[in-house]
């Protein structure tokens, strides 16, 4: 009975949403603030990738909120899974022997992934991608050896350090703008030549901070989810 009502109502919802969607016409976006941003983004922010200029320039506070959400999720996950490490479960399965193919290929991949991640972060304001995407790749890079090489543990202290400082860096850049008379999270420094690496003022710095923070957080998160105990975890217990 319950499923029947659920199906019925979700069908009704689909129909209603389609009725709503049908009243729009694809492609003629009202472009009210979109047009304004497109016109003067290059002048005001100077980043080649306009999406980055919106993410870090015009709507910088959203990204700050965004990092805070990821940080809260990571903290809450470690709170929920904190003392419940994998070790008590690993006992009943035999210790996985060191797969040489896996181990060596991981050692090969690690530097590649690292450079890819850093490249994406650093070129956030030029090419598509930026702090979030690069950060996830970095997290993948750090997490891969943990999966491949058993017994390798993650040092949470280091991760917390990187995470803390990069988060603080993001906010401090914002605050320096505030204390230097401009508004909070106002892009600083001159824009430089568009398209070059050192252009768009403080945006690259912000994206690097975001990238490092997301990278550190997610590797910690993945370690927690995988139940890989870490030095810092023992210290805290």
């Amino acid at each position: 009975m319950r499923n029947l009502t659920a199906l019925l109502f979700s069908g009704g919802l689909a129909f209603l949403l389609m009725v709503i969607a049908w009243q729009f016409t694809l492609g003629d976006a009202p472009m009210l603030i979109g047009a304004a941003i497109l016109d003067n983004a290059v002048k005001e922010v100077g980043a080649a990738n306009l999406v980055t200029s919106v993410v870090l320039g015009y709507r910088g506070i959203d990204t700050l909120g965004e990092i805070a959400i990821l940080f809260t999720a990571a903290t809450a996950t470690s709170m929920v899974l904190g003392s419940f490490a994998m070790t008590d479960e690993a006992s009943e399965t035999e210790q996985r022997e060191d797969g040489s193919i896996l181990g060596s290929s991981v050692r090969l991949f690690f530097p590649l992934l690292l450079t890819l991640g850093l490249y994406i972060i650093v070129h956030g304001h030029l090419t598509p991608g930026g702090g979030f995407q690069g950060g996830v790749i970095l997290a993948g890079a750090f997490f891969l050896p943990l999966l491949a090489i058993p017994g390798r543990s993650i040092n949470h202290g280091g991760i917390a350090l990187v995470e803390g400082f990069s988060g603080a860096a993001f906010i401090l850049i914002g605050l320096t703008a505030l204390f230097s008379g401009q508004a909070f999270l106002q892009p600083l420094f001159e824009h430089g030549v568009i398209g070059h690496l050192f252009s768009a003022g403080s945006l690259p710095l912000l994206y690097i901070a975001v990238g490092l923070k997301v990278g550190a957080e997610l590797s910690g998160l993945l370690a927690n989810l995988a139940g890989i105990s870490s030095h810092a975890a023992e210290a805290e217990k």
Binding site: G34, V51, S53, V54, T63, F132
Partner: peptide, 12 residues
């Protein structure tokens, strides 16, 4: 160009 604002929102 396509409107960048929704893309920023979707990122978040």
């Amino acid at each position: 160009m396509v409107d960048p604002v929704p893309q920023a929102m979707v990122l978040t």
